[in-house]
């Protein structure tokens, strides 16, 4: 059976995620996120805990880090480094585009 619906979503960067929502979206406990923010691997580390909000970039980074830590037993420092490199590769590949 095919069900059709028209749905309107919200942009995560316009309505950012709370700590709990970001944790739920990544399938981790909030403390997992807190530890990586405090270590400077996610977010900018400059905001107070009660105001922590997470945008698309944080969500992508957090999910990639979780995948690396889970699949490769990577320590958070190594996972963050790999994600940094993935982002740099993507940036350079975009620059290598047609224009």
């Amino acid at each position: 059976m095919t069900q059709n619906e028209i749905v309107t979503g919200v942009l995560v960067d316009e309505v950012t995620l709370t700590l709990e929502e970001a944790a739920q979206a990544c399938g981790v406990e909030p403390q997992w996120i807190v530890e990586r923010v405090e270590a400077g691997f996610l977010g900018d580390g400059s905001v107070q805990m009660t105001y922590w909000r997470f945008a698309s970039h944080d969500l992508t980074r957090a999910r990639r880090m979780r995948q690396l830590e889970s699949a490769f037993d990577a320590v958070p420092e190594l996972a963050a480094l790999v994600v940094d490199l993935q982002e740099e590769v993507a940036r350079l590949r975009r620059r290598l585009g047609s224009v």
Binding site: T2, I6, V7, G9, V12, S56, T60
Partner: peptide, 22 residues
């Protein structure tokens, strides 16, 4: 079950942004 969603793409969305469908 196949579930087709017609998703509104907001004007001004950038690559890498997430659209959250509640």
């Amino acid at each position: 079950r196949e579930h087709s969603l017609h998703v509104q793409i907001p004007k001004g969305v950038k690559e890498g942004q997430h659209i959250r469908l509640s």
